[in-house]
Nucleic acid binder design. Structure first.
Lengths: 112, 112
DNA sequence: AAAACATATGTTAGTATGTACATATGAATT
DNA sequence: AATTCATATGTACATACTAACATATGTTTT
């Protein structure tokens, strides 16, 4: 009468919650691209918008989220605001995920 | 009159979309735990529910999602359905994220 | 100090996601 | 073959996200 499942370790609740937030934050194409390009180069808000074809307010909103989680920081240069990566470690997750995506695309596509 | 931002590589659209889906799928505490425990041991639906304190239908719904993305597979044993990890690579992303979460929790908490 | 520029923030509407409950399927037991 | 057990699936509601638009803030230029 044993369902098994003893001796199994779980993710701690606080870790789980934090991980969930991080992943939710990353699961957006605009923010993924932003982190990806900001790792390569410091960029102004308008430059980001042009590169990614996004409206100004959309870019700002996304950057606000990334700022809140301290994944990026910014400095003012004249009127412009330049952003750069603040957390190199987050990029590991991004690149790992892109690699995974690449594997999936090469191999087994998951159907409807 | 140059915003800079030349010579910057972007994530390809299809990779981006795939990555987004994967991350969305992972950004859920129940599914994270499921992947985490299924890496340790094959488990039945009811065992998963007991371990994670989740209702049967909730577990099934989540498993259906994981199945759709071929992160888990299942085999029937009598009445029970046993699930196991189908994609070990996905665990790299999970553990990397948990580690990141741990760093965040130790160090800099991100405010409201 | 007014105008123009760059960015940030508030608000709203459409859409997606998660959970709960009800029902269906499919296997084993009697 | 009817009942029970384990799991799956359908549906509805409440919540969360994203993008669009409007407006506000802060800086430079004239």
């Amino acid at each position: 009468m044993n369902n098994l499942g003893d001796n199994i370790s779980l993710i701690e609740k606080r870790h789980l919650k934090e991980a969930e937030q991080i992943l939710k934050l990353l699961s957006n194409p605009a923010r993924l691209q932003m982190l990806y390009i900001l790792e390569q180069q410091e960029l102004s808000v308008s430059a980001i918008g042009e590169l990614l074809n996004l409206e100004q307010s959309v870019v700002s909103h996304h950057l606000a989220i990334l700022r809140k989680f301290q994944l990026v920081n910014n400095k003012r240069v004249g009127k412009a605001m330049f952003y750069r990566l603040d957390d190199p470690h987050i990029l590991d997750i991004v690149t790992e995920t892109i690699e995974h995506a690449d594997h999936v695309l090469r191999g087994k596509p998951h159907g409807k």
